[in-house]
């Protein structure tokens, strides 16, 4: 090798990783609590996952296998560039298979395949404070967390029902962790909220611009907030995935033409591909015999 300058393993220097690991340990010790940390400048703009990248850099080791998803997909810009970043700076194995990964960095989705013990799910978080849009003062929201004053969170849900007739919050749906802290699960669809409950995987949340880290340890109670007469519900889809025919997975709408045509496909590309390999076919899937020609 004739490189003049090289990166430290996983880009960040060891002191920084140590600082982030201390924040992560504290976050795991107090599930749902937002731990402040000295977020670093990363070689990417804020909003692209600087928090998630720092958390991943602090926990990744040479033997890890990394998967990065953006809205469930392994092949979008954000996912591809972060995966390439760690290939280059840490030289770790990368994969798109959920089951093979030891660390999964995600933006806005939890994989459809059930996570296993030993896996770490790292979320990129834009706004960690669930009370932010109701209470702009940071001093006040901290006090509200400290004193467990969460009535305001229900004011937001009340407003939803008053305006729309049902709880219209579909993403960043507030949850209560282990009966104590109310937490913003980052902009994941509420479809994924039940997957956080009692998950065997460790879930870490990093917000780079807001300089906060929080965590859900394995097998932790995560309850979505609701009203007795308007219970929490996840999204349902009227049709199966157009490519793999899956029912009960989270679907994205894909525009097909300029005449209003569209199809619904699994947002989790790995889940969809694995199903297609196993021979599941949706109504718009390519015929494998024709594709081979």
């Amino acid at each position: 090798m004739t490189e003049l300058a090289t990166y430290n393993f996983a880009y960040l220097d060891e002191q920084t990783k140590r600082m982030i690991r201390r924040a992560i340990l504290k976050a795991i010790a107090i599930p749902g609590y937002q731990v402040p940390f000295a977020s670093r400048e990363m070689p990417m703009p804020y909003g692209w996952g600087t928090g998630g990248v720092q958390v991943t850099a602090a926990v990744i080791g040479p033997k890890d296998t990394l998967k990065v998803i953006d809205q469930g997909a392994d092949d979008t810009t954000n996912a591809v560039s972060i995966r390439a970043f760690f290939q280059k700076t840490a030289n770790v194995r990368v994969t798109t298979r959920t089951a093979e990964a030891t660390i999964i960095q995600t933006r806005h989705r939890i994989p459809e395949a059930a996570l296993q013990t030993g896996q770490i799910l790292v979320y990129q978080v834009p706004i960690p404070e669930p009370l932010r849009f109701l209470e702009p003062r940071e001093t006040e929201t901290r006090k509200m967390h400290a004193l467990e004053e969460y009535g305001l969170m229900h004011v937001k849900l009340y407003e939803d029902i008053a305006r729309h007739g049902h709880i219209a919050t579909t993403y960043a749906y507030p949850v209560k962790v282990e009966g104590r802290y109310v937490m913003d699960p980052s902009p994941t669809p509420k479809f994924d909220n039940p997957k956080m409950h009692n998950s065997p995987a460790l879930q870490l949340f990093g917000a780079g611009r807001e300089k906060r880290i929080y965590a859900i340890p394995p097998y932790t109670e995560v309850v979505s907030l609701d009203f007795e007469d308007h219970p929490f519900e996840i999204q349902t889809f009227s049709q199966p995935c157009a490519l793999c025919g899956a029912k009960g997975s989270y679907l994205d709408e894909v525009i097909l033409d300029d005449k209003g045509g569209s199809m619904f496909v699994c947002s989790d590309t790995d889940f969809c591909e694995v199903r297609q390999e196993k021979g599941h076919r949706g109504h718009l899937a390519a015929n494998p015999a024709e594709a081979a020609e």
């Binding site: 109701l134 004053e149 009535g151 305001l152 229900h154 004011v155 009340y158 407003e159 029902i161 008053a162 305006r163 609701d226 009203f227 007795e228 007469d229 308007h230």
Partner: peptide
């Protein structure tokens, strides 16, 4: 007052703060 939430939510906020979790009753 909370100027950006509805009148009903303004009145209901204290009820929700003390643990009322039934939308119909709050309303």
């Amino acid at each position: 007052l909370r100027m950006t939430v509805s009148a009903g939510a303004n009145v209901g906020e204290r009820l929700m703060a003390v643990g009322d979790r039934h939308y119909g009753k709050i309303r």
